[in-house]
Design a protein around this nucleic acid. Structure first.
Lengths: 242, 242
DNA sequence: CCTCGCGAGCTGTGATCGCAGGAGCGGCGA
DNA sequence: TCGCCGCTCCTGCGATCACAGCTCGCGAGG
């Protein structure tokens, strides 16, 4: 009984940008939709994606879904388990540490590169996103939190004009997105601390070093939440179960 | 009777590793083959890839080729020009600088992470690759040089066990590979300087800082060759022409 | 001789079909 | 009642067909 609760790709979503992708290839729309679901954690690890199932759900044939999943597999977001199974990449402590290190390597750089190219209006927009993020945290809305978090970081990064660097970072988010969702759902979003304020202040002050430190702290904080409590193994187990 | 000069994927190549991929999905073989061609520069920018053409050349249907090209597009190696055209991503000065910065960010880190996990035998193997690389430089064999260069760097990186980081780096190589081939073919491989010796020495000495510096110098040197002579624009023009 | 228009061919994209194989489950034997 | 074996459904993979759109070349008109 799928009852098509999920939005079909070319359904007339009033707010969805799915309608905006009109004219674009179908597989691109499918890819964007799946990417959104992954980054915002709507797709949690362990669930069994299937080309036919997703095709049915999105109202398209299985061909675009195959293309989209192929792209996602190329970016490491999902793995094709030989035959018969295709699911989001399982998380291990090693892979988690690897992802964290990569994020710490790339994202502060991306933020600093964006610093001289941000005007006051852009900063104000980021601050608005941050406000909405705070509301999401207070309301305990994990999905909204992750969407705002994504919007904040990439609203900042995209200003740097470095498409290659940003693409690498997106690949990283694609990989830890589903995992973070599981973690936050496990922990609750109440414990989250908003570390973006310092970044915004550094942005307005034009202080590169402070910005670098703020972004690094944000990453380390959000993800350290897990490392500190040795949650990896527990979550790993949980993933295996579910 | 298509003269099939290029190796078909599952042709009975005696030396080819194409036979080794037996049992694996066909699209994976196609992807590996295309990736090799891109990284080693066998595919230069401006040439018109086509699913049907490649399928004919590789002896498969166009479906696996589509999957493979989709993956490569996801990694930024090729771009799908709306309709009717699919070619390797064009290079610009900005994108080049972006790629260079990303490489300088990631690769020294990957090398240092591999340092404590290399035994003497692995270092000897890297030294052997480096010797072969020198021979390729003296002989002016650009293809062999790029293959050896790839083997050297990733033979080193792969020891670090950080799959995510290495995958990011591979994506970068995939993007600048075809471009470097053009540059070297333009410049000639004779001007190349082998900067790997310092890295090998640092490896044997276990000196992380020296290794970091050596890798950074290797990258900056090989790619600075272009920046110093303001070759970007000329090559860019050349790409537009061809 | 030059220019403009139109048609054919080739392109990527999407749909449908067939195939081999693995996983889950029901039935049968002890 | 429990364990094992066979089957069946469903999966991903590959092939083939159909379609819309872009490009390029050829021919007609000035």
């Amino acid at each position: 009984m799928r009852t098509a609760t999920a939005a079909q790709i070319h359904a007339d979503g009033p707010t969805a940008d799915g309608a905006r992708t009109e004219g674009a290839p179908l597989h691109a729309s499918v890819y964007e939709e799946l990417r959104r679901r992954l980054i915002t954690g709507k797709i949690t690890p362990g669930v069994g994606l299937s080309t036919r199932g997703l095709a049915l759900e999105l109202g398209v044939s299985q061909m675009p879904v195959r293309d989209a999943l192929s792209r996602l597999a190329a970016e490491g977001a999902v793995v094709i388990r030989s035959k018969r199974r295709i699911e989001v990449a399982p998380m291990t402590a090693d892979r988690f540490a690897d992802l964290l290190a990569c994020r710490l390597l790339l994202e502060p750089e991306a933020a600093v590169a964006a610093l001289p190219r941000l005007d006051a209006r852009a900063i104000r927009r980021l601050r608005a996103i941050d406000t909405e993020l705070d509301r999401a945290i207070e309301g305990g809305d994990v999905i909204a939190y992750m969407e705002c978090n994504f919007a904040f970081h990439f609203g900042l990064y995209r200003a740097n004009g470095r498409a290659t660097l940003n693409r690498l970072i997106e690949a990283l988010w694609l990989q830890f997105g589903p995992f973070m969702r599981t973690v936050y759902g496990y922990y609750g979003a109440a414990n989250l601390v908003d570390q973006h304020r310092l970044a915004l202040d550094a942005l307005e002050a034009g202080d590169a070093d402070a910005l670098r430190a703020a972004i690094a702290a944000d990453i380390a904080d959000g993800m350290g939440l897990i490392g500190r409590s040795r949650l990896e193994t527990r979550v790993e187990t949980r993933l295996d179960v579910s």
